[in-house]
Computed example of a mutant assay.
Amino acid sequence: MQRRTLISAALGSALTGVAGWGLLQPPPQAGTIVRGWEAQPGMRLYTGADLAFGTTIAIQVLHDNQRQAELAIQDGFHEAKKIDALMSIYSESSQVFQLNRDGRLCQPDPHLLRVLQETVRLSTLSGGAFDITVQPLWLQFTKAAAMNTLPSPAAIRSAKALVNWRNLSIDRHEVRLHKPGMSITLNGVAQGYAVDLALAAVRQRGIRHALLDTGEFISSGNKAPSHDWMVGVQDPRRDDVLTAVLKMDGRSVATSGDYETIFTPDFVHNHIFDPATGDSPLELASVTVAAPTGLQADGLSTALFVMGSAKAMSIAAQLDNVDVLLVDKRGKTWMTPGLRTTPA
């Protein structure tokens, strides 16, 4: 599972590559917690880093008790790493790996069931544009990329024949793939779900102010009195430029873009697949979603990317407390009015 490093975060006026780490200071090493500046009398910022989803994840909390802040950060990381271990497509001990290997999984974990149920909802909402069974397409493209080429039309047709979310059955006793050769990926939802669980764990320690980054962002409270947490949305074609800086309002923010994993330098073929074509969608370069939960924001960002700008804006208008920022491959942008922005 690879992190989609598509959003940078801002601390004060210094935009950062990872949440809360200034351009002029290195991020803390994974496994460490750094005691930071005093945001207000008695309240300090504590920043921790750890490894999950194949990258560095981060948690910042503002609190008046160092020990409670450290425990909250550790609890948050524990929850995120638990989801990584459960839903990785690479680890042989994960339930997703076992499902893909065997075609069935008995006694699925309740967290896995929760996420799978959300993917069914997203697939239904998007008319199949969101489909976790696209993993055979990913396998064909990565196999071809190792030989500096693209998969043949026949290889794409063969993989595409295995893609259909309706051929996945889910209940609390068993998850089953109904066609030999099918496989799933939860890379479009797992990190969002992880950030939800991590925030819940942080709040259990009495933390009111926090910003969490598992590859998707979520916030609670404020960075400092009268100062919001902020995240910057990366320009899809220039990694040192921001399309927008969003003020966090307690919702989660997730971005899907065509530039994180590419199979051709023109971004036409990338890691996001349209189940209807067996290849990457051609219109959009990035989709950023603000939604009540990380799970919802993460999944919607992929679904709306596949659906394209017109359908994405229509769907966003129908959903409660959901806002979007779209950027197409020519740089044209669309943004719903509920996003709170500040100059980049």
Rank of each mutant, 00 (worst) to 15 (best):
D279V: 14
S219F: 03
L325A: 03
V163D: 04
G278L: 07
I132K: 00
S301C: 14
T214A: 06
R101M: 11
G42F: 06
R205D: 00
K332E: 13
R340N: 11
L125K: 03
T302Y: 04
D266I: 10
P236Q: 06
L45G: 05
T55N: 15
L15E: 04
W21V: 15
P265G: 06
P343C: 09
D131F: 07
K81C: 11
V287L: 04
T32G: 09
L137D: 05
L300I: 08
L284A: 04
S126H: 03
M147W: 12
P236G: 06
G192E: 01
P151R: 05
N222C: 15
G31W: 09
Q66V: 14
T336F: 10
H271M: 06
W21Y: 06
A144G: 09
W165R: 14
H209Y: 06
S8E: 12
L177T: 02
V96Q: 00
P153Y: 12
Y90W: 13
T142Y: 07
G206I: 08
V327P: 09
D320T: 05
Q74I: 07
E38R: 08
Y193L: 10
Q98Y: 03
L86H: 03
A30S: 15
N65R: 10
A344T: 06
L86K: 02
P28D: 13
A9D: 09
F141T: 01
L71G: 04
F141W: 14
I7M: 03
V287S: 02
D102A: 15
E70V: 01
S256D: 05
G221M: 11
A276Q: 11
F53M: 10
G103K: 09
P265L: 04
K311P: 01
Q2A: 09
L71R: 14
L246I: 15
A39G: 13
G17L: 12
M335Y: 04
S226L: 15
I262Q: 10
L326S: 00
D171R: 04
A316I: 01
T264N: 08
D240N: 14
P28R: 11
F217C: 08
Y193T: 07
G54F: 02
A9G: 15
L284C: 07
T302Q: 06
T124F: 05
A316E: 01
I73F: 05
I315D: 01
D131H: 03
R330H: 14
T124R: 12
D64H: 12
K179T: 13
L186C: 08
Q117Y: 15
K332M: 07
T47N: 04
I33K: 00
G192C: 02
R3E: 06
G308Q: 07
T261D: 08
A200G: 01
V163F: 03
T185A: 11
Q68S: 12
S158N: 12
W334F: 13
A200R: 13
Y46A: 00
E92N: 08
A80L: 12
L304P: 05
G338F: 06
T277K: 12
F53I: 07
I89T: 15
R237D: 10
T185L: 06
Y193P: 02
L242E: 07
G232D: 05
V18L: 13
G12R: 09
L62E: 01
T261F: 08
K143S: 14
S226R: 13
F97N: 02
A201D: 07
I57T: 06
T16N: 14
H111C: 14
Q66S: 14
L282E: 12
D64S: 15
A316F: 02
D266T: 11
A254F: 02
A210M: 11
L71A: 14
S169W: 03
T333C: 12
